[in-house]
């Protein structure tokens, strides 16, 4: 494969969506109301759809027997390069919303840049994703406000979730070697450029939600290098179960 950097870059973008979709899928049938269940499932479906487009493209680049499913389900834990934020568990609904919100703000900024990529496939997938992501951002922001500025109890729970997940936000803006190659080629997005915008946009919503912007400046990192939190292994156990137990079959 002469395009290893592009391949890796695509995984860097897409693993986030896959792992988050998987987390949201766990909630199916267990949400706080039927309407919320339907909404969360919709987001999960959007993210899954995005993954499929990217992984299909990545599979084409890699060639051979590679398929969207072998990429999604047959790597070792160390080969997944999603950020730590998206693999964090659904501790309670506040975590679901906080994780979604902290990711959506980033994801939208990322897609808005990626639609200008010199790589036409990436650009066109991104352009389609923007609409979905815009809606996700709106959904999660609304809920951050509802829970933050709802009852005393919900305020505390929402603050707890924001505080707990804050340490994973800085990693969103890290750039790997392959990312840098792709940025230099005009294909990848220099995410570090909108770091300030990100924190500003996040702070605006948190403020409206009467939540405190955490002051913690000590951040966790590792996901982009394949060094994850303990949670990912269990998630992958489910995700990969069928492909691992029954290798080389069609489903």
């Amino acid at each position: 494969m002469n395009n290893q950097a592009l391949y890796n870059y695509i995984l860097g973008v897409t693993d986030n969506s896959l792992i988050l979709a998987q987390r949201l899928g766990e909630l199916c049938g267990h949400g706080p109301s039927l309407e919320t269940d339907i909404a969360i499932t919709n987001i999960s479906l959007d993210l899954l759809g995005q993954c499929r487009s990217y992984y299909q493209y990545a599979a084409k680049i890699k060639g051979g027997d590679t398929t969207e499913d072998s990429i999604a389900m047959l790597r070792t834990e160390r080969e997944y390069v999603n950020v730590l934020l998206v693999e964090q568990p659904n501790e309670h609904f506040g975590f679901v919303i906080a994780r979604q919100f902290l990711f959506d703000v980033f994801h939208l900024l990322q897609m808005q840049e990626l639609q200008n990529s010199k790589d036409e496939t990436l650009a066109s997938i991104a352009a389609k994703n923007i609409k979905e992501t815009l809606y996700h951002r709106r959904f999660s922001s609304d809920w951050v406000k509802r829970l933050g500025d709802g009852t005393e109890q919900s305020h505390a729970k929402m603050q707890e979730a924001i505080d707990a997940l804050w340490r994973y936000t800085n990693e969103l803006f890290e750039i790997t070697e392959d990312d840098q190659k792709m940025i230099d080629a005009g294909i990848g997005v220099d995410v570090s450029k909108f770091k300030e915008t990100y924190y500003k946009q996040v702070a605006e919503v948190l403020e409206e939600a009467t939540l405190k912007v955490p002051e913690n400046k000590y951040f966790q990192t590792g996901g982009k290098k394949g060094i994850h939190t303990e949670h990912l292994g269990y998630l992958l156990t489910d995700l990969q179960y069928m492909q691992r137990t029954y290798p080389n079959m069609k489903w």
Partner: peptide, 10 residues
């Protein structure tokens, strides 16, 4: 588990 969420939204 959803009760606090529904209450908060209201």
């Amino acid at each position: 588990r959803g009760e606090w969420v529904r209450d908060a939204a209201l």
